[in-house]
Design a protein around this nucleic acid. Structure first.
Lengths: 103, 103
DNA sequence: CCTGTGTATCGTTCATCTACGATTGACGAT
DNA sequence: ATCGTCAATCGTAGATGAACGATACACAGG
């Protein structure tokens, strides 16, 4: 995974409202738009925007059901992201103590 | 981990230059400032700023050695982040096909 | 046909991010 | 003392993000 791709996915997750959405979707598998809108203390238009960000990063997917939308996590994308980061982390030696921060 | 904390760490990783830095540090354990500055096609001041972002999110640590700085990953922080996200992802059912995106 | 519901999009405002050059401050070496 | 090196910080310009209300559109129900 390139640095751009990693950064893109991270950016999609870089806002509390979006993390919340991801958690909602994880908790209930498929989730109607109304439930998402009701699950956050934000205007509908704002949430719609967050959904778009998540979707264009590939973190979630959506499809219409009747008159409304259903959103769900795109698990593979999330997993690939975790995997790529995990590899980086496991490469790292556990840079020991020397404890404090200086300067 | 709260949504804010998750989002904060994600935000720290939400820029290609910062992902790059994290990769550099993972690759060489401890890394002199000069090497970081040389490893990216950006001005020194810009890189220094990115380092600060990573550091204040707790993703990296630093200490002075002689006249220069040494940076290293803060592995536990990275791991906690991965772990928290991993739990979310594993909660999620694999929201099947219905394939396409609509609307 | 009119109305309401469910979402997306537009336009705007304010805040934050990114990048840079210039500057600063600490330290070593000459 | 003077200079060069290393890294952080300042100040600024331009880009992007976040939030909102208003509006637009598709469709279902009456």
């Amino acid at each position: 995974m390139t640095e751009e791709q990693l950064a893109m996915t991270a950016k999609a997750l870089a806002h509390p409202a979006r993390v919340r959405i991801v958690r909602l979707l994880a908790a209930q598998s498929e989730c109607r738009g109304h439930d998402v809108f009701a699950g956050l203390p934000l205007a509908q238009s704002t949430i719609s925007q967050h959904l778009r960000v998540l979707k264009s990063a590939g973190v979630i997917r959506s499809h219409a059901v009747g008159t409304s939308m259903v959103y769900c996590l795109n698990k593979p994308v999330l997993e690939e992201f975790l995997c790529a980061l995990g590899e980086i982390a496991s490469d790292a030696a556990t840079c020991d103590p020397e404890q404090g921060d200086d300067r």
